[in-house]
Structures are given as C-alpha cells and as structure tokens.
C-alpha cells in the first residue's frame, strides 16, 4: 500500500532531532508538525518572519496580525521570536535552518528540483521555495512517486523549469524513501507492502537497489 499523507508526514517526522529549527512547506510538510516524536523539542520557522510557530488559534485567540507562510492564522509558541522577511531569509539563506521539508513536481538524479512552474499553466510564483532550496543543506522532498497517469517524478533530468540546482539529497514518496548521491537515487526504505519491482518500474532516473530494502513500519 502506498503511504497516506499522514504516514508520509509521520515518516518525515522521524528525521527530526532534538533542538532542530525546521521549516515546513505547504501541504504534506505542514502535517509533520503533528508527529514530532515525544521527548524532543523542535522549533518551526515560518518564512514570513516567525521562529517558534505554535498551533492554530482557538476562535478567541484569532489575530489578523499573526499568520504563517501559508497565510493561515497561527499562534506563537513559548520562546518564539518575530522579525522581518529580510531577517527570516537571512536565516534560511545563511544555512541556519536545520531541516527543510517541501513538496515538488519533479526531482532528478543530480539533486535538481522543479516545484513552481508548469509551462502553459498560469504561473503564480515561487514564493520562498527558491531561497529555501538554495539555503538549506538538509532538505527532504515529499511527493507522490508518479503522477496520476503513472509518469515517474524521479527523473534522469527534470523536464520542468527548476526551483534549484543540485540541492536535494533526500526524497520521501508515497512508495519509498530514497537518497540522491553520485548521480543516482538510492533506495533506502519501501512503503509497507510495496514491492521493489513497483518502485523500479515507477522510477525513471537511475536507481540503485541494495539486496535488502527494509519496509517502513508504522505504529
């Protein structure tokens, strides 16, 4: 079975470490916040200018001046700080954020990522995605392994305009967890009940498969 969105978030959350500053993109990455392992502290960075993002507010707490990068109303966690967008991207570009999780349309064997523009469709903009991929060392991309039509999103070379070049090392899809190194995807884990053959079939870019590919487990 392919992973659900919640399971993908759960798997990503296992990469969180105590004391990490983390930027979570919109969509599945946002859900990661729900699965922070017990006993560790992480602080969420929201690129509009908030370090220490708390939960959504209650009706009574809603404040138009307090939003996240997805423009949703949020609260500030204890120990949060608030700053300008220039300061926020100084943190991001300067490599101070420990982990960035974001979605993508395509990733390729050289660590290139395409996530913002589909030619022929209306272009809404890249927001902070280009800064995040250029600035972070530790990035996890979350996306489905293949399109609804079965076309692989793990490619020899991205076909869409890039968001960043040579910046992605880790990919979690609904079928597998993979790392990118030396011009290839390396299969590290597979979703429960998903065969190595299915992953090979749905990976267009060069794929290195070890003898033993452990299955992910979920409580």
């Amino acid at each position: 079975m392919a992973l659900s969105r919640e399971q993908m978030a759960q798997r990503v959350a296992r990469e969180l470490q105590d004391g990490f500053y983390v930027n979570l993109g919109i969509g599945i990455p946002t859900l990661v916040a729900n699965y922070v392992p017990a006993g560790i502290e992480v602080m969420l960075q929201s690129e509009n200018g908030l370090l220490g993002m708390g939960p959504f507010p209650t009706e009574d707490e809603i404040d138009a001046d307090m939003i996240n990068a997805g423009k949703q109303t949020v609260t500030a966690a204890t120990g949060a700080s608030i700053f300008s967008s220039a300061e926020s991207f100084a943190m991001i570009r300067g490599g101070h954020v420990d982990l960035t999780v974001l979605g993508a349309f395509e990733v390729d064997v050289n660590g290139n990522i395409a996530s913002w523009m589909i030619p022929g469709k209306l272009i809404k903009g890249m927001g902070g995605a280009m800064d995040l991929v250029a600035g972070a060392d530790n990035i996890i991309v979350t996306m489905t392994h293949a399109s609804k039509h079965g076309e692989s999103k793990l490619l020899t070379e991205c076909s869409l305009p890039l968001t960043g070049r040579g910046c992605i090392k880790k990919v979690l899809t609904d079928l597998a967890y993979l790392e990118i190194e030396d011009g290839a995807f390396h299969l590290k884990e597979r979703a429960p009940g998903v065969s190595v053959e299915e992953i090979i079939e749905k990976t267009e870019g060069k794929l290195i498969v070890p003898d033993n590919v452990p299955e992910m487990t979920f409580a």
Binding site: E47, S84, S85, A86, S88, F89, I92, R93, M126, G127, G128, A129, M130, D131, A134, G135
Partner: peptide, 23 residues
C-alpha cells in the same frame, strides 16, 4: 524569489546597488 525580494528592498534602502545570491 521571496528572500531575494526582501533583500532587494533592504539593499536598496541601504545604498547597496546589487548583491550575489545562490537563490
């Protein structure tokens, strides 16, 4: 890009005509 936009304004106000970024 959002960070580049913020920095373009910051630099503009600070008398810096241009800057280099990996973004």
């Amino acid at each position: 890009p959002q960070g580049t936009l913020a920095e373009k304004m910051r630099a503009g106000g600070a008398g810096i005509p241009a800057f280099y970024t990996a973004t």
